[in-house]
Design a protein around this nucleic acid. Sequence first.
DNA 1: ATGAAAGCGCTAACAA
DNA 2: TTGTTAGCGCTTTCAT
Lengths: 340, 340
Amino acid sequence: MAPNRPTIRDVARQAGVSHQTVSRVINGSEDVLPETRAMVEAAIEDLGYHPSAIARSMARGSTHTLAIISPNLTDYTFASVIEGAEVEARQHGYFVMSSSASDPQAFRELVDELVGHGRVDGLIVINPYADERYKLIPRDFPLVFVGARSHDEKICSISLDDERVAYEATRHLISLGHTQIALVTGPMTEDCSQDRTGGYRRALSEAGIPFNKSIVFEGDWSASSGQAALVALLEHGLPPTAVFAQNDRMAMGVLHAARDANLQVPQQLSVIGVDDMPLSSYFDPPLTTMRQDMPQIGQEAIRMLMSIIQKKNVDLQGIKFPAQLVIRQSTGKGGGSSSG
Amino acid sequence: MAPNRPTIRDVARQAGVSHQTVSRVINGSEDVLPETRAMVEAAIEDLGYHPSAIARSMARGSTHTLAIISPNLTDYTFASVIEGAEVEARQHGYFVMSSSASDPQAFRELVDELVGHGRVDGLIVINPYADERYKLIPRDFPLVFVGARSHDEKICSISLDDERVAYEATRHLISLGHTQIALVTGPMTEDCSQDRTGGYRRALSEAGIPFNKSIVFEGDWSASSGQAALVALLEHGLPPTAVFAQNDRMAMGVLHAARDANLQVPQQLSVIGVDDMPLSSYFDPPLTTMRQDMPQIGQEAIRMLMSIIQKKNVDLQGIKFPAQLVIRQSTGKGGGSSSG
DNA sequence: ATGAAAGCGCTAACAA
DNA sequence: TTGTTAGCGCTTTCAT
């Protein structure tokens, strides 16, 4: 804390008015004579006065601060959501504290500090986990979930339309003639992975392709898990003609393993990911992927939260965003067995 | 704000003691009879009481909150610093608000809100810019700079030892026999780029290799700028045998351009980067790079800041961290003209 | 249009 | 060991 910041009373004394008048000036009240206002402003300038956000929060009973809790800050998708949210929050005059909680214990502590201790007016949880973590948050506290299904009628959630995104990615592969389509999922404890797996199965099913459990691998979103998946697939003598990796990093791992195995992409193997991270077009070959607009999701989450805080009618229970197929060079014609 | 949170007085009433006794209990004071404490704790539990962080800040005159301002949240290196800082701050019982300010104007506003309005007790600025931005921050406010030189005797700074990192990267190339070593820099408005360029020149100079301005390109840290650099180099008929890209993303762009030009890496062109981001070992070929430990830098920054806040003797004016050469497959023997 | 008084929820003296 | 009295810096009545 800067030592001895001038207070509203110092300004008042200097300007020869009451502290209340100073309060009016800094809050843009109309009921102040222009000349009075000028004096006060001069004093403010002179003293280098800044209102104390803490004292304001104290007196007003609200902090004008929001929090975002995400599993980590380094994952590009999370960071993008946060950045989008931050920009939007600032537009509304709110601040956001972004913190990460990698495990349930840290999550609990964070919620306690942030919500329990009244540091924030609202909370956004980027929560990929299909657990009941939300129960840790006091009901009726302004809350928006990002990236997970709403497990409760009364909780607003917003996410990518994971089922559809996966459906479309798989459709793309199928339309190219592939029928042996391996799947590399994220951790199945996450809603996102479950939904994407659902979309994959629906596309397969609609195309009359049987679901083959032996070519489905659970990864952890990392490149190395994608690599391991393809290695395992090849070792087991189950070479697919295409792989749908549920994110770009794992797709990159698949590409890497394909190189090691001297498999030509896309001639011998097609690969599609999800995210379209900035580096995806620099992969070798450039990756076909489902592009999602994470900052927009962050922005929308803040808008929702603002509505809730301002007690506007919030009928928006669960919003799902689409993603866009970006065709690059990692996917190409497959087997040639298709026709229905 | 949760409606009607119970206060210290509600607890006092319920427990039949004074509010001050409640305060003692929640602050772990020794001077409370065990039985009194038990009563108070029961009341706290019963009412679901949580102390208000705002009121505490108000009464104590400090917020126990720190801020980190970085140019953005999505850059992997920044995010890693922030994550490391967060973990360390929590150990000290502090919170951190991380915000991004992409331009000087946003930076000014953020400083105003965060520092001017007394929201935080200390500030970490991840500031790659070689400008005088620090002057916007009140002198004597606890401040630590990350990633930039200290332009003022009284400001603590902490960063990678950019000069040395670049020196070592260049040495690696030289030791492989390269003499035509192109350089792709970050924006030259950043300290980091300047220092890395300095290290590159020193290594060249020590090896008796003349500095050739025509094979130096200014990029912007993006993969596309790295790609553009190599394309330009080739167009101008100045094919180097090696490229030192000042970060991994640009190195990836160089790799991409090399592929497009049918240049074999590392047989015809060696490429080295800086960072060792998680994906670097998945590039094609896996990238040789200088690994830096960003979370550690964040951690150290917090420690420094805590020292300053606690008015401990802070002689640590500027700490510089080393980086570690990680040799993968993007660098190999060069021209063969070297000998001294 | 301006001022005076009270209070937000807590901590920090000081008393008892 | 516990309670009482004052603030922290501001906003919010209610007067004037």
